[in-house]
C-alpha cells in the first residue's frame, strides 16, 4: 500500500454534507417489512412473500432472455437453465430491491456517500458461487454489497433469485472494498471544495489552459487508502472509516492530473495531504 508513514501532517477540514436529503427507495410493492432479523449478523431465510414482492417479474429495465426465466424446475435448482449465466441488469436491480425490502434499518437509517438518508451506498452485485455437490446441483444466488456511511459498516446480503428470498445478511466493520466510481467522484468533489484542491486546480490550468470548477471536467479513479501499522494523526481512523485516494485525468485521453498525494476520508468528509508523495494508482 501507499506509504502510511508519510500520512502524518495532513490538514483536516470537515466539509458539510452536500445535497442532504431524505430519500427512501420506492420498493416493489411499497411494503415495509419490519424484520427482526436485522439484529443478527447472519439471518435466516426470510420468505419475501411477506412483503408482497415474491413472484413478481423483475422490476425496471427490459429483462433479456435470461432474466429470471424459465421458472425453476420441481426441485428449484437443477436441470438445464440459465442458473449460471452472467447477471442481467434486471436481476441486479431486482436483487437490490429484495435485499432492501427485508431490512428496515438499511432502508431508513443508512446513508450513502452523499449522506442521503435511507439509501445505503450500493457497491455491487455478484453471482454467488454455487457450492460443489455430488451430482452437480446449481444455484442462482447473488451477493449484494452495500456500505452504510451512517455507521461505517459493510453489508453483504445473499439473495436467492429463484426463490426470491434473502437468505443471509452479513455485516462487518473495518473492511473497505474499492470505491465505486460514484464514491471516487464524491472524493474528488470534496477535494475540489477544499483549499487543498488548489494544487490540483493549478495543475489542471497548466495542463489545459482552463479553470477546473466541476468534477466532471476530470475522469477519476479511486482506491482505498489503508494505513499500515500503528497510525497517529488525522488519518488514524482510516480503515475503520472509508478513506480513498484518487487519480484523475482529463477526459478523452487528456493528461493525468496528479492527485495521489491527497487522502479523502469519505466517512467524515475531510481532506488530507500526505507528507511525502508516494505510491499512486495500483501497480
Amino acid at each position: 500500500m501507499r506509504d502510511a508513514r508519510s500520512a502524518g501532517a495532513g490538514k483536516r477540514r470537515v466539509v458539510p454534507p452536500a445535497r442532504r436529503r431524505a430519500a427512501l427507495w420506492s420498493l416493489a410493492g411499497g411494503a415495509v417489512l419490519t424484520a427482526a432479523a436485522t439484529t443478527v449478523m447472519v439471518t435466516g431465510t426470510v420468505p419475501l412473500a411477506a412483503t408482497g414482492a415474491a413472484g413478481r417479474p423483475p422490476a425496471g429495465g427490459a429483462p433479456t432472455s435470461t432474466a429470471l426465466s424459465p421458472a425453476p424446475t420441481a426441485d428449484g435448482r437443477t436441470g438445464p437453465g440459465p442458473w449460471r449465466d452472467p447477471l442481467t441488469s434486471a436481476e441486479i436491480e431486482r436483487a437490490q430491491q429484495l435485499a432492501l425490502a427485508q431490512d428496515a434499518d438499511l432502508r431508513t437509517a443508512s446513508e450513502n456517500v452523499e449522506r442521503e438518508r435511507g439509501r445505503p451506498q450500493y457497491l455491487g452485485t455478484d453471482l454467488a458461487e454455487s457450492p460443489p455437490s455430488v451430482g452437480g446441483a446449481w444455484e442462482r444466488k447473488v451477493v449484494v454489497r452495500f456500505y452504510d456511511y451512517s455507521d461505517n459498516t459493510l453489508i453483504h446480503k445473499t439473495v436467492d433469485l429463484l426463490s426470491q428470498k434473502v437468505e443471509s445478511s452479513r455485516t462487518v466493520r473495518g473492511v473497505q472494498p474499492p470505491p465505486t466510481p460514484e464514491e471516487a467522484r464524491e472524493a474528488l468533489a470534496l477535494l475540489l471544495a477544499d483549499p487543498l484542491g488548489d494544487g490540483l486546480r493549478q495543475d489542471y490550468a497548466k495542463a489545459t489552459g482552463g479553470a477546473l470548477t466541476r468534477v466532471d471536467q476530470l475522469r477519476v479513479h479511486g482506491w482505498v487508502y489503508t494505513p499500515q501499522g500503528t497510525q497517529r494523526g488525522p488519518l488514524r481512523a482510516c480503515g475503520t472509516e472509508r478513506c480513498v485516494q484518487v487519480s484523475t485525468r482529463v477526459p478523452d485521453d487528456g493528461p493525468r492530473i496528479d492527485a495521489s498525494s491527497y487522502v479523502i476520508n469519505l466517512s467524515d468528509r475531510s481532506v488530507h495531504r500526505l507528507r511525502a508523495m508516494s505510491g499512486g494508482p495500483s501497480s
Binding site: 451430482g135 452437480g136 446441483a137
Partner: peptide
C-alpha cells in the same frame, strides 16, 4: 443495529447450503 460476532459458524454454513443434498440426489437420478 447490528451485532458483531464471528462470521462463519456451522449454522451459517448450513444456511448457505440449503437443499444441496436433495437437489443433488435428483440430479444424480437424472
Amino acid at each position: 443495529k447490528k451485532v458483531f460476532r464471528p462470521l462463519i459458524t456451522a449454522a451459517s454454513l448450513a444456511l448457505l447450503l440449503p437443499s444441496a443434498l436433495p437437489a443433488a440426489a435428483v440430479a444424480a437420478d437424472a
